[in-house]
Computed example of a mutant assay.
Amino acid sequence: MFPIRDHNPSERTPFVTYALIAINVVIFLGQITLPEEELSQFLYTWGFVPGRVMEGYGFETIFTSMFLHSGFMHIAGNMLYLWIFGDNLEDELGHFGFLGFYIASGVAAALAQALPDPYSGIPMVGASGAIAGVLGGYLLLFPKARIDVLFIFIIIFKVFPLPAWIVLGAWFGLQLLNSASQLDAGVAYLAHAGGFVAGFVFILPKWLREGGPAFWRRTHGHPPHPEARYDFVRSGVPTVKRRR
Rank of each mutant, 00 (worst) to 15 (best):
F15I: 06
F15N: 13
V16L: 01
V16A: 14
V16Y: 09
V16G: 10
V16T: 13
V16I: 11
T17K: 01
T17M: 05
T17R: 00
T17D: 11
T17W: 02
A19G: 10
A19Y: 06
A19C: 13
L20F: 14
L20S: 15
L20C: 15
L20N: 06
L20R: 06
L20H: 11
I21L: 14
I21A: 09
I21E: 11
I21H: 05
A22L: 03
A22S: 11
A22V: 02
A22F: 09
I23Q: 04
I23Y: 06
N24K: 02
N24V: 01
N24M: 05
N24P: 06
N24Y: 07
V25P: 02
V25S: 15
V25D: 14
V25H: 13
V25W: 02
V26Y: 07
V26E: 12
V26F: 13
V26G: 13
V26P: 08
V26M: 11
V26N: 04
I27N: 13
I27Y: 01
I27M: 00
I27V: 14
F28R: 03
F28I: 01
F28L: 09
F28T: 05
F28K: 01
F28G: 08
L29R: 05
L29T: 04
L29P: 11
L29S: 15
G30F: 08
G30Q: 01
G30R: 03
G30E: 12
Q31D: 11
I32N: 12
T33M: 08
T33C: 08
T33I: 10
T33S: 15
L34P: 14
L34W: 13
P35D: 15
P35Q: 05
P35S: 08
E36A: 06
E36G: 12
E36M: 00
E37I: 07
E37F: 00
E38Y: 06
L39Y: 07
L39A: 12
L39R: 06
S40Q: 00
S40N: 09
S40V: 00
S40I: 00
S40K: 11
Q41F: 04
Q41E: 15
Q41S: 15
Q41R: 08
F42S: 04
F42W: 13
F42I: 01
L43H: 10
L43G: 10
Y44F: 06
Y44I: 08
Y44S: 15
Y44H: 07
Y44Q: 14
Y44V: 05
T45V: 04
T45I: 00
T45M: 03
W46E: 11
W46R: 01
W46F: 15
W46Q: 07
W46D: 05
G47S: 12
G47I: 00
F48T: 14
F48V: 13
V49R: 04
V49I: 01
P50T: 03
P50C: 03
P50M: 02
P50E: 09
P50Q: 01
P50I: 02
P50A: 01
P50F: 02
P50R: 00
G51Y: 12
G51K: 12
G51D: 13
G51A: 05
